[in-house]
Each structure stands twice: as C-alpha cells, then as structure tokens.
C-alpha cells in the first residue's frame, strides 16, 4: 500500500494536566502510527508539575488545541478552574492544583490559552467532526458513559449539526455509535483511567471506506519521573499516588454510580 492510499489518521487527546512526559510519549506514538493531524481537546494544566513545559511540545508538533475550562480560567486570570465539581473534597484539591498551575504559568502562555477557540470543526471521511472540551453546548459539562443516553446525544448531534462529537473533561474514555453518528470521549493524557494501570490514553480516528473508526490507544510513559517531579514541587500526595497507582485519589466524587463502582476507590 502506498503512502497516498493509506487511510487518513487523526489523533485526538485531552486533559494534559501539565503531564508533559505523557504528552511527549503520546505525540511520538501518534506520529509513529501515522497520524497526520493532531488535536488537543483542552485542559493543559492541573495536577502535574511545571505547567509551562507542555506548550512548546504542542506548538512544535503543530497540535491544534481547543480551549478547556482550565485554559479559559488561566487565560482570563480567573480565580478558579470552573471544573464543574460540586463536592467539597473535589473542590479542595481543584483549588490546590489551580493555584499551583496559575502561579507557574507564564504570562506569554496565559495569553496563548486565552486566545484558544472553545471548539474546532473538522472534516474526516466526508463527515463533520466537532471537537470540544466538555460537550458541544458547555465547556465544563461532564459526558460520562453511564449518564449520557442516546436520546440526549441525538439532540446534541442535531442541535450542533455534526456527525461526530469528540470530547474529554471527564478523564474516562468511551465511545458509542448512535444511529449513524459517533460520540467519542477521548479520555485524558494527564492521569490514568482509574483502573489500576499507570498508562494514559488517546484516541486515533481512522478514515475508512465505511466511515470513521475510533480506537483508544494506551501509552506508557515515565510516570515514576513525573511523580518524583510532582513531589519535589510539593504537590499533594493524592496527586502523585494517582500517577503511581493508576487509581484516582482526588477529584473523583463527581463520578456517577457505574463509573464509580468500576474504580477501586
């Protein structure tokens, strides 16, 4: 098969959370697998160390980036991340990570975050693909697999005139075909999936003869180095333990029943 006849591949990833080591590995993996376009669905800062380190990686790899709620807040110099948490425990940890990230993001990159678009529309295999952070209608809306029913998705596809929706924000990846449309939550590259595995994951869209196929790709990275750097930056144990164990130790009260029951915590 020649290069020109290869199916087009598009890599989608979200929730970098300052995990620049995972980001590096994901970009390398996506390129190696033949991705010609890379998109980030937002939330570049949060739990991890040295927030400024993710931006050059995105710019150098020509990653087009959607603005997440975190990016909007940091970019507009807001007081909090607008993560949409409602539990005091979740909000307590969100405040710690936001404060650290805000203090350690330089003005140049804050302005860059401020100017990002809240969504990007692309075309793949002749189909309209809407890239957003939370949902097409609200940046910090959580689209969990067990609380996002098909009738509601039909409304989103119709209201936003798209064939495919790709989102992140929850931290857990999933996908579903509804009629002829596709929803993909691409997961996050900033922390593991609350399943006891330290890998992170991203989504590879492949344009095939019969439309678009979405594959979730797991990627290992130097998570021990990341947790060591997080500890030296004085970030909470709950954040480093999440990276080291693959089980979420913070910001998980928001999980619905089914997703929560799957986790160990």
């Amino acid at each position: 098969m020649t290069e020109s006849s290869s199916p087009e591949r598009v890599a989608l990833f979200g929730g970098v959370y300052s995990n620049y080591l995972a980001l590096e590995s994901v970009i390398d993996d996506a390129r190696r697998r033949g991705a010609t376009r890379l998109y980030c669905l937002g939330d570049l800062g949060a739990f991890g160390p040295h927030p400024d380190r993710v931006f050059p990686l995105l710019v150098d790899a020509n990653v087009q980036t959607v603005q997440g709620n975190y990016d909007h807040s940091i970019g507009h110099r807001r007081d909090d991340c607008a993560c949409g948490y409602t539990d005091p425990k979740d909000n307590y940890f969100a405040r710690i990570s936001y404060s650290y990230t805000f203090e350690n993001t330089s003005d140049r990159w804050k302005d860059w975050l401020r100017d990002l678009n809240p969504s990007i529309d692309i075309e793949l295999a002749g189909r309209r693909v809407h890239l957003c952070h939370g949902s097409p209608r609200q940046t910090n809306e959580f689209l969990w697999e067990s609380t996002t029913p098909d009738p509601f998705l039909r409304r989103l596809f119709r209201d936003h005139e798209t064939d495919v929706i790709a989102c992140t924000h929850t931290g857990l990846s999933w996908q579903r075909t509804v009629d002829t449309n596709l929803i993909v939550n691409v997961g996050v590259v900033g922390r593991p999936e609350n399943d006891g595995c330290t890998d992170v994951s991203y989504c590879m869209l492949t344009a095939g003869e019969n439309g678009i196929v979405a594959d979730q790709v797991r990627v290992a990275y130097d998570h021990e180095r990341l947790s060591a750097e997080m500890r030296s930056e004085g970030l909470p144990n709950e954040f480093t333990e999440t990276i080291e164990t693959g089980w979420w130790k913070s910001c998980l009260e928001i999980l619905p029943a089914k997703e929560r029951a799957r986790g160990k915590c």
């Binding site: 409602t86 539990d87 005091p88 425990k89 909000n91 307590y92 009260e253």
Partner: peptide, 11 residues
C-alpha cells in the same frame, strides 16, 4: 444529585 455540602467540608 450534586453534592451541596457546605464549602470546604472540613478539608
């Protein structure tokens, strides 16, 4: 269903 416990909740 969202928690509406008082802010901070002891943390």
């Amino acid at each position: 269903n969202a928690s509406s416990a008082p802010a901070d909740g002891g943390y």
